[in-house]
Amino acid sequence: MTTENYVSELRWTLSDIATIARRNILTLVRIPTSLVFAIIQPIMFVLLFRYVFSGSINIPAGTYVNYLIPGILVQTTIFGAVGTAIGLAEDLQRGLIERFRALPMARSAVLAGRTISDVLRNIMIVVVITGVGFAVGFRPHGGFFPYIEACLLMLLFAYCLSWGFAFIGLAAPNSETAQAMTFPLIFPLTFASSIFVAINNMPGWLQVFARNQPVSQAANAVRALMLGYPVGNSVWVTLLWAAGALILLAPLATRRYRQAA
């Protein structure tokens, strides 16, 4: 193939990804209820932990609201990946993916377009939750740029993880099952972590898991960046987890896409 052909192919691949991502965003905007609930759910978490549980949760230092909001942001971006699974399962169920597979479009575009549009949705939710956080007393002292850095880190982390959820979406027989299949994965990862509570208060056996699992690392890194604490290795470890997840899960999902029908 000539260089010109490669350039043209790359251009169409990007165009295909943009077309699919645009279509997903339009879908999201057209069903306002799903968007509203995607935002309401994390707000409920903020209010629940800020006002109901905060008095009963011991954290090592600082106020609980400052501990909580970076955690909730990480949790919310990961929960966004459930939408990735549901969206793909729905497209598959409705026969849209079948139609796409008979088109001369890039094979990677359906998955890339889906995961990218879900990042855009996550960005919007991060902005909203940051606002809600400030309203309930969140005062990060890490500075503006580390805050942005923290947001980029968790969006990247969630993006890489979402390829695993894309695989689930393609493997599930329908969208309801896809959603149910994500829970056994997402609950231990987000709740047995440093997102809401200090790991030191967990039973010993659980601490081993909670301390070492990727979501805790991401939560620690994001929290340290936002609050201006020393980050230690957490940023690097999070990036490594993200890269590992992408390298392992993206080919898995892509392979599944080729087979799915």
Partner: peptide
């Protein structure tokens, strides 16, 4: 695609072709 208009549906398939 149910959530798109008829016009958007055809344009989408056109773009993907």
């Amino acid at each position: 695609d149910e959530n798109l208009t008829g016009f958007e549906n055809i344009v989408m398939i056109g773009r993907l072709t």
